[in-house]
Amino acid sequence: MNIKKIVTPLIFLLLCLISVTAYAHGVDDETKSFLQGNKGVAFGPFLYIGAKHMITGYDHLLFLVGVIFFLYRPKEIILYVSFFTIGHSVTLLLGVMTDIQLNIFLIDAIIALSIVYKGFDNLGGFKKFFGKQPNTKAAVLIFGLFHGFGLATKLQEFNFDREGLFTNLLGFNLGVEVGQFLALGLVLLILSIWRRYSSYTKFANLTNMLLMAAGFLLIGFQLTGYFTT
């Protein structure tokens, strides 16, 4: 094995992890103050914020892990990820531009539900229980819509300047895709290495069960927030 094959993924991993040390998932204080103080077009900063948001967005990432867990052909991976991307991009833009008012806890709970759904689906749950498997592509697209609303509501928590908003939003959206690309790259890297070992099939069920557990955990977390605030 030559050095490049070891070093490159390690550097990649390191770069990804550095961004994760940023505060997870929400919008952290520095971002908050930037967004509130910003006036006009700030494409670059919004792009960075979008990327950071996606890389630290564990609920979005968990869903993606579930989606690509049993996808092996690059075409399929690109296809499913594209459905997710289209879904979340549409509602991100729509949500912020129309200043849609959605309860953040409920949306996040639905996003958590998407994680449970995917884990369950990966275990073949729908085929076993209901005989039918719901159209996975459609499900990814539709859940993608909810993920986008989640992104939008997080961003909406701060009253930012309406001038140049659309441009900034496009930057944010592009950033989200960049973050998604990076995170996905890391996940695919890990998966493709893991897939070479027999432990992959052995632990595939366990992993998807853990995915469901994480989803249930997050559902509980979000619903508690909904009922207590």
Binding site: N205, L210, G220
Partner: peptide
């Protein structure tokens, strides 16, 4: 499958 479902709910609930 049901076993896995229940275990995952239990794990999630426990950590929660």
């Amino acid at each position: 499958l049901i076993k896995y479902l229940i275990i995952s709910i239990l794990i999630g609930g426990f950590v929660l």
